Amino acid sequence: MRRWTTAVTLSVTGLALYGAPASGAATDGDPVAAIQRQLVKGHGVRITEYSTFNSSPSSGWERFKPTKGVVGFGDGKVTATDLWDLQVGVAGVRDICIGKRIWEHDPKDKLPNGKKWVTFKYPCVLRLETGYLRLDKPDVLAAVLATTTTTKALDTYDGSPTTLREGSISFRQLWNVRPELRDGFLKDERADWTIDWRLWIGQDGLVRRAWSKWREPAGDKWKGVTNGRSWLGFVSDVRYSDWGMKLTIKSPPAAQTIAFNKLKY
């Protein structure tokens, strides 16, 4: 079975104001308002996320197999996810995440007869984002869009012509709308490190693709892995399709589920 700490650290897998309209007021056709209108019960979006990691000059950039699946909404937020992580094993691992519990199906797991899922408590990553840039939080998305440096018409995604907006936002700027990041790994001396970002926005204001690239301090944990370099590099590239699709993510049948602490290895 997969161990979640590593997978979540490298995920994204994978953006983006209630109450602060000064620099990013939500208007019709604006991504801030368009995405908020989607976050209703019984609906969701399909995603495919590609993650790339750079641990040292010698290893260079490594692109992982994608994570694919659906994200469910309700009451103005993400409420559940149902995703296949194809990086794990030959066939990948499927995880259904609701609240603070995960149900995991690994085709290679040898479980007791009739059991297909293992469940355990875990703080699910219930959000739409690329890197640290959250799409589902109006404050964050507005702050990101306020750093736009380039806007141009570009490719068609999910059947909609898109406008590419791109720019760069510092971790210091993100702290203003995501103060919890200040208590994390990135201290004041690296607050001006930046996240380069690109958003492909459809004619309806919905994001069809979200890309970001950034670096993080390597820290003591990674000494020796980075060949003397002080940082690790990350790229998150997420594709969104079928916005507003009817979707209700439910936990697997209890008869097919076994608690992790009841497994014997």
Rank of each mutant, 00 (worst) to 15 (best):
W4H: 07
T6K: 11
T6S: 15
T6H: 10
L10T: 14
L10M: 11
S11C: 11
V12L: 11
L15H: 13
L17K: 10
P21L: 11
S23L: 14
S23A: 15
Q36I: 05
G42P: 01
I47V: 08
I47L: 08
F53S: 06
S56R: 00
P57Q: 02
G60C: 02
K65V: 00
T67Y: 02
T67H: 00
V71R: 06
V71L: 00
F73A: 01
F73W: 01
K77G: 03
W84A: 13
L86P: 10
Q87A: 09
V88A: 12
G89H: 10
A91T: 11
A91I: 08
V93A: 06
C97H: 03
I98K: 08
G99F: 07
K100V: 12
E104H: 01
D106T: 09
D106I: 03
K108Q: 15
D109L: 07
D109T: 13
K110D: 15
L111G: 12
G114A: 06
K115Q: 08
K115F: 00
K116G: 01
K116W: 02
W117A: 02
T119K: 14
F120T: 08
P123S: 06
V125Q: 14
L126W: 07
E129P: 00
T130R: 05
G131K: 01
L133E: 14
R134K: 11
L135F: 07
K137V: 13
P138D: 06
D139N: 15
L141S: 10
T147K: 07
T147D: 00
T149Y: 02
T149C: 09
T149N: 09
T150C: 01
T150P: 04
K152T: 09
D155T: 03
Y157P: 11
G159I: 05
R165M: 12
R165H: 11
E166F: 01
I169F: 02
I169K: 13
S170R: 09
F171D: 07
R172V: 05
L174G: 04
W175G: 03
N176W: 02
V177D: 08
R178Y: 03
R178E: 10
P179N: 00
G184C: 08
G184N: 02
K187D: 13
D192M: 03
D192S: 14
W193D: 15
W193C: 04
L199K: 06
L199V: 00
G202K: 08
G205K: 12
R209K: 14
R209F: 05
S212M: 04
W222P: 11
V225K: 10
N227T: 09
L232M: 13
V235L: 07
V235S: 14
Y240W: 00
Y240L: 13
Y240Q: 04
D242H: 04
M245N: 04
M245V: 10
K246Y: 07
S251D: 11
P252C: 04
K262V: 08
